[in-house]
């Protein structure tokens, strides 16, 4: 690691002013991506601002059909929550036990790794991302590869999810890293069907063609008729874009079969 100044503010305001005053600062939440990156010397921030000591940013609360997850809530806590079983299931499959004990939802979605799990839920469960500055609709939040609607210095304080009538998350893990090669969250809320896909593209997205087909006929068979355009999908040594496209279909079917 290169040298940096470590800070551990106790309020959000303090965190933001540290960031504003830093030459090249970076927030640290769980550190599951940032710390390995620093160890590899692939980043050299001047200041690391740890959000871990700021009170009020953790916990899962349920209020009137909305589940609110604090930005610094560990994956393991969400995995143990009961309000949205599919969300708990998703959280229980992030990384490994140690990642779940340290990693946070805010850190995950602020990073916007194309293969992270949470983004599938953010786009599929009508989420609202609350930050120190504003609220952002889940569908507008992810903007590209490791890119989000967040501005410099903005901190994710909580994420609200709508409780669906039914939902399921299906994941095809990278055999080595356990990231999602493809992850699909299917949610049904009245007549509305949401299909959130992670791993396949530059960032999480809603598969609208699948959603339309499933809105007309909510059955696994309905997926078969949908052509999945994989031309812009990711490709690596574990899965070609074509295979990812195939998996989006397979996982969607399986998710539908679970909840149909």
């Amino acid at each position: 690691m290169y040298q940096f100044n470590y800070h551990r503010p106790s309020t959000l305001d303090e965190a933001r002013s540290l960031m504003a005053g830093a030459e090249d600062g970076v927030y640290l939440s769980g550190g599951m991506t940032l710390i390995p990156t620093l160890k590899q010397r692939l980043a050299s921030p001047s200041d690391v601002i740890d959000l871990g000591a700021i009170p009020g940013l953790t916990g899962v609360t349920v209020n009137d059909g909305t589940v609110s997850v604090g930005g610094m809530t560990r994956h393991s806590e969400v995995a143990a929550s009961e309000a949205i079983p599919a969300l708990a299931d998703l959280a229980s499959r992030i990384g490994d036990a140690h990642v779940r004990n340290r990693g946070t939802i805010g850190g995950s979605i602020a990073n916007s790794d194309p293969a992270a799990d949470y983004p599938a839920a953010v786009v599929a469960l009508g989420a609202t991302v609350h930050t120190t500055n504003r609220s952002i609709a889940g569908s507008d939040y992810f903007t590209g590869l490791f890119e989000t609607a967040l501005h410099d210095g903005e901190i994710v304080t909580s994420v609200d999810f709508c409780v669906p009538d039914a939902a399921a998350y299906e994941k095809f893990p990278n055999p080595a890293s356990r990231y999602a090669v493809v992850g699909v969250m299917v949610a049904r809320c009245g007549d509305c069907i949401c299909v959130g896909v992670t791993g396949a593209g530059a960032c999480a997205f809603r598969a609208t063609a699948l959603e339309e087909a499933l809105a007309a006929d909510f059955s696994p068979g309905a997926v078969d008729g949908v052509g999945i355009d994989h031309s812009e999908y990711n490709s690596d040594i574990h899965a070609s874009a074509e295979f990812r496209g195939h998996l989006v279909g397979v996982l969607t079917k399986r998710a539908v079969a679970t909840i149909a």
Binding site: A176, S177, I237
Partner: peptide, 18 residues
């Protein structure tokens, strides 16, 4: 796995499947 230029692209536990 080496790529055509001789770079080891399965060079960590993120890509070499133990």
């Amino acid at each position: 796995v080496y790529d055509d230029a001789g770079q080891l692209v399965s060079g960590s536990y993120m890509d070499y499947t133990m």
